[in-house]
Design a binder for these strands. Structure first.
Length: 150
DNA sequence: GCCAACGTTGGC
DNA sequence: GCCAACGTTGGC
């Protein structure tokens, strides 16, 4: 799951311990959250639009999917006038802090790792939520404990 | 700040 | 239903 650190960072999640992942306004990302995420699933936390961009830690899904309440909040930048009271369009999950990596695993480092060549992240560059295989997850976990090469 | 990629909107 | 215009994401 991607977030701009200026909006919401791994540090914010660490301090809050748990947070609702609001603001997803892309149908594919929404479907992924709504249909595939279940309590206890592990999540890679990715800082986008950052210096550097990359994976910074691990979180876990801490709620079932439920309607993103900001779609009904006129004061929110995520307000969506097409969302009816009874028929939400956008969904979110709560995520809980698990671990902050001792360093950022930079995008360039992920790109240079052979085992990560077919990550969905590369194909769907602009999606804020992309699936990660168990294998990929473990490879990235291993990278986290190593000293940076890239 | 630029710009490529690409999703969304709306006219027809 | 097509597709041009537009808006957004996010790397660089």
């Amino acid at each position: 799951m991607k977030s701009e650190p200026g909006e919401f960072s791994i540090d914010d999640l660490r301090k809050k311990k748990k947070h609702h992942w609001d603001g997803v306004r892309n149908f594919e990302a929404r479907n992924f959250m709504r249909d595939k995420m279940r309590i206890g699933d592990l999540v890679l936390f990715y800082h986008s639009n950052a210096t550097p961009s990359g994976v910074v830690g691990i979180a876990k899904v801490a709620s079932s999917p439920y309607p993103d309440f900001t779609q009904w909040d006129k004061a929110s930048k995520y307000f969506d006038k097409k969302a009816g009271e009874e028929k939400p369009i956008w969904f979110m999950v709560d995520v809980a802090f698990v671990e902050q990596f001792p360093r950022t695993i930079k995008r360039s480092e992920l790109q240079n790792t052979a085992a990560l060549k077919s990550m969905a992240l590369w194909k769907r560059n602009r999606l804020s939520i992309t699936p990660v295989t168990k294998k990929e997850f473990e490879v990235i976990q291993k990278l986290a404990s190593k000293t940076s090469l890239a």
